[in-house]
């Protein structure tokens, strides 16, 4: 047994005030929102792009994900 107290209330970071936790919570939800936007962009690139994303190089994204589009039921040419 340790000589330190095992009382969780004493061991816990009591110095963290409530507003610090709400700041951390806001930060975490912001990260989640950014991740959701990136996920939407990725889905758009894979399933909805018809050559707009890399216009200079042609239909690369569309052709690369061609089989996946058909298989997941996305509209394709």
């Amino acid at each position: 047994m340790s000589e330190h107290t095992l009382d969780p209330a004493a061991a816990a970071p009591a110095a963290v005030p409530a507003d610090a936790s709400s700041v951390r919570s806001a930060r975490d939800w912001t990260i989640a929102a950014v991740a959701a936007v990136i996920a939407l962009l990725a889905l758009w690139a894979v399933f909805f792009d018809n050559g707009q994303a890399i216009a200079a190089t042609g239909d690369y994204l569309h052709e690369f994900s061609h089989d996946g589009r058909h298989l997941f039921g996305a509209p394709c040419h």
């Binding site: 989640a32 991740a35 959701a36 990136i38 996920a39 939407l40 990725a42 889905l43 894979v46 399933f47 042609g58 239909d59 690369y60 052709e63 690369f64 994900s65 061609h66 089989d67 996946g68 589009r69 298989l71 997941f72």
Partner: peptide, 29 residues
């Protein structure tokens, strides 16, 4: 054709992984 069928087969797996990752983000949230 822009890509060979072999590349498109590989693209199928990549597409599925990208889809899974994106859906996983929405799932977690």
């Amino acid at each position: 054709e822009v890509f060979s069928r072999g590349t498109q087969h590989f693209g199928l797996v990549v597409t599925a992984v990208v889809t899974g990752l994106a859906l996983g983000v929405f799932f977690g949230i």
